[in-house]
């Protein structure tokens, strides 16, 4: 057990919390935040596990991947927010309707 693994496990826990939020939160903005929390958890895992090199200098590949991941997350978040705003503008809803209306 090193600090790296501790951080990585924290990342997994963060992922779990985010997942719980995504499933159980009803308000869409909360859902967006929860999804981002999941993402943050994954990024934390990647960064933490990249620090396990013998030399101490972190492995650059996961860092680059996380950068890519962040940009993807930003884009997805923007799209989510755009969709939610549009839905709210059009229907006044802030939650997804419970019943699937096809």
């Amino acid at each position: 057990m090193t600090y790296a693994t501790l951080y990585a496990i924290c990342g997994v826990v963060l992922f779990g919390i985010g997942f719980y939020g995504t499933v159980f939160c009803r308000h869409l903005i909360r859902k967006v935040m929860a999804v981002n929390l999941m993402g943050a958890g994954v990024f934390l895992v990647m960064i933490a596990l990249a620090a396990r090199t013998p030399s101490g200098a972190p492995d650059p590949v996961p860092h680059a991947m996380v950068l890519t991941g962040i940009v993807v997350a930003v884009s997805a978040t923007a799209l989510m927010l755009a969709l939610i705003r549009r839905l709210h503008h059009q229907t006044g809803l802030t939650e997804l309707p419970e019943q699937m209306e096809h």
Partner: peptide
């Protein structure tokens, strides 16, 4: 259909 095809059940089923 009602109990299977909704967000919550799907989330639980996923995990």
């Amino acid at each position: 259909t009602r109990s299977l095809e909704n967000d919550l059940t799907a989330g639980l089923l996923l995990v």
